[in-house]
């Protein structure tokens, strides 16, 4: 179980990396943490002509809060994001999601950017990004573009990143007032990819009614999705509303299947986990409101 022969390029700057992608894009695989790519390379599922290593590119490991957005460089390791006070205070949903990502030994190396670029439908970091309405910053030779997370994930392992683009940063909207963030998931084993994951950002206004609500689901469809919930604004944020929203979500999803779970079960998890996470978030929010 050894990879095919591939060339290796170690970029020292972002410019070098995107120059190489301009040249080799189609045949290059970018390696950051390598937690997913490494396994696919070793199994010969991925057979690139060249592996582009961006781990030594300076400046891609920063976490910066400015103008209502926290920008995390592509190389921010999952463990560092989890320990970072800016993330904890400004992007609590991500902080809640990170302990569910892989294991101690993989979070040490795995990156936020790598998880997003890989686009596993069950991955927690993409779900948090979609739920918060964040964005992905892509750079190619001569241009930089921001793609809203909702448009970035196209399907299983498939994203809007063009072959000549490098994912350089993620943009996380900072926490909103009166908003409670919650995350939970159900996996067969501790640390496995979630069969279903639910991410919530719930704002409850002082009269106890729901303001803005973002409900994201991971592991359910072929990409992280956000459920349309605008119609629920103004309703009393309580357990029965949580149930109604979760039921609605369950009726709308078109679940994927795999060895772990069939479609009915995934839909059921949307129902039950959605209800539980929403209800807990509403309760917290009402208490804080």
């Amino acid at each position: 179980m050894k990879p095919v022969a591939f060339g290796y390029a170690r970029a020292e700057t972002v410019e070098e990396a995107i120059d190489l992608l301009a040249e080799e894009g189609r045949e290059a695989s970018v390696i950051a943490g390598g937690l997913s790519l490494g396994a696919m390379l070793n199994m010969r599922l991925v057979r690139p002509r060249i592996v582009l290593d961006i781990n030594r590119v300076p400046g891609l490991d920063t976490i910066v809060a400015a103008n209502g957005v926290v920008t995390t460089g592509a190389l921010v390791r999952q463990v560092d994001a989890f320990r970072d006070p800016t993330i904890a205070s400004h992007v609590p949903l991500l902080a809640h999601a990170l302990p569910h990502v892989g294991h101690y030994q993989t979070r040490s190396r795995g990156t936020l950017g790598g998880s997003v670029a890989h686009a596993d439908p069950s991955a927690e970091i993409p779900l948090a990004l979609v739920t918060l309405g964040g964005a992905v910053v892509l750079r190619a030779k001569g241009r930089t573009r921001r793609v809203p997370a909702a448009d970035f994930f196209l399907g299983v392992l498939t994203t809007a990143r063009e072959e000549n683009e490098l994912l350089v940063a993620l943009e996380w909207p900072t926490r909103r007032p009166r908003t409670v963030y919650a995350f939970d998931e159900i996996a067969q084993r501790h640390g496995d990819f979630a069969i279903a994951a639910v991410a919530v950002a719930a704002e409850v206004v002082p009269d106890g009614t729901l303001g803005h609500l973002a409900l994201g689901l991971g592991g359910i469809e072929d990409r992280p999705i956000r459920i349309e919930t605008a119609g629920y604004a103004g309703r009393r944020a309580d357990a029965s509303l949580a149930e109604a929203i979760a039921e609605d979500a369950a009726s709308r999803v078109v679940p994927i299947v795999d060895l772990q779970a069939n479609a009915d079960y995934r839909r059921q998890l949307v129902r039950v986990l959605g209800r539980r996470v929403l209800a807990a978030a509403f309760e917290d929010a009402v208490r804080g409101a």
């Binding site: 937690l35 592996v51 993989t106 040490s108």
Partner: peptide
Amino acid sequence: GACTVEIDGRATRSCLRYAVQ
């Protein structure tokens, strides 16, 4: 996890890293 080693102070999988890196 059998291949876990400490690289630059962090425990991580050595089967998902390439020597040239």
